[in-house]
Design a protein around this nucleic acid. Sequence first.
DNA 1: ATTACCTAGTGCATACATTCACGAACTCCG
DNA 2: CGGAGTTCGTGAATGTATGCACTAGGTAAT
Lengths: 229, 229
Amino acid sequence: MSDTPRRRIPEAALGRLPIYLRILVDLTNDDVTQVSSEQLAELAAVNAAKVRKDLSYLGTYGTRGVGYEVKFLTYQIQRELGLNQSWPVVIVGAGNLGQALANFTGIAERGFHVVGVVDKDESKIGQLVGGVRVRHADELQQIASSKAVSIGIIATPAQHAQEAADSLVRAGIGSIMNFAPTVISVPRGVNVRKVDLALELQILSYYEQTRNNGLRAVETGDSSDSVSA
Amino acid sequence: MSDTPRRRIPEAALGRLPIYLRILVDLTNDDVTQVSSEQLAELAAVNAAKVRKDLSYLGTYGTRGVGYEVKFLTYQIQRELGLNQSWPVVIVGAGNLGQALANFTGIAERGFHVVGVVDKDESKIGQLVGGVRVRHADELQQIASSKAVSIGIIATPAQHAQEAADSLVRAGIGSIMNFAPTVISVPRGVNVRKVDLALELQILSYYEQTRNNGLRAVETGDSSDSVSA
DNA sequence: ATTACCTAGTGCATACATTCACGAACTCCG
DNA sequence: CGGAGTTCGTGAATGTATGCACTAGGTAAT
């Protein structure tokens, strides 16, 4: 078979690929050229078998008895995640959060660049945020199509999030990352991922409370004991 | 059995309780007093059976043939999550993100209050951020113990995240929320949750790429027909 | 070549999560 | 009061994720 009949990557594994990727990039910077699943697992704080299984969804890129070649594996994960290109992204909402996101260098470093920031508030329009000028929310569609944007970020207050989502969908955007603390509804076929600070804090609150009740909190995923040597 | 032999709530269900909670609060504001699992499910964009099962971990708080009393259920979820009290929180890192977090009203509204923001950068110290003055990272331990803080937020660059984590642990903090794009290691017993923007974007990138390959992306928690080209 | 030793890849058992489907329990109405 | 209608709670089936333990396939040294 010339081209791999690519299996869909399970959601759980998919969520770990970016972590491996980051570690691999760090390893390259440290001039490490080979890495074993055992080492990767240690660095990612997961089980080694899990690392191997996750990577096996991509293809057979390791060498038995040796490990994985860092550069090659880096490339393969990037390719699989679609990070060979830099994706244009629009941010809806130029408040605290929108600005912090636009200025977040991690975005640019990892395969994305902000091509637009919009807001409904006239007083924000024209401000320079993360290298782009804030434009009016009504211009979203125009920005999205002229820059071929397919990923949008909602950084509005909760009460405007659904409206923002609707605009993004109308603008033809297929993937949305929602920072607003509310559930947004989108048509089938549009991908949504949410980042919900309050939710995460509330989960921590639960664990803190159970800890104090003498019930041992169970850590998220698997926790490695002890600090790095 | 004197007290309720409280079952531990499964991680997956736990992650949805804050969503239900938010919806219930909204319902109260709209003067809705009763709600069915069907309605809750609709609002939370999940399956009704899931709602019922999730809520059943808390106890038997619904009434067959009727539904759930909004106020009562709200109270029970809050109690379970430990949100009867307002948790003091410290933020490590007063950069863009740290400031945005400190100013984020959603924190205060949902059972948390920022009692300290620290940074290593002398130029940031003394600045007023989200109502508190930035103090030096060395004072973390003092702040944490004087204010009985048990939840810490890491909002530093990746390269300082482990150091921040170590400080938080030394300060006796048991739950950490990590915004830095790196894996931090902590002693067993310390809870860590991560919020990783780049990771989420990269997952969206994957879905966008597969969409363009004609392979239908599968949404989170949603099914669709898989097609291969 | 042969042997000793690694380490990737994976089948399988187990654990966890989701969803269905149905009985139990409640309300409403005639 | 009794039957129709509603909705919770949950057992059981299915789907997904994890981790062990083994095999296959590679290196290295003699």
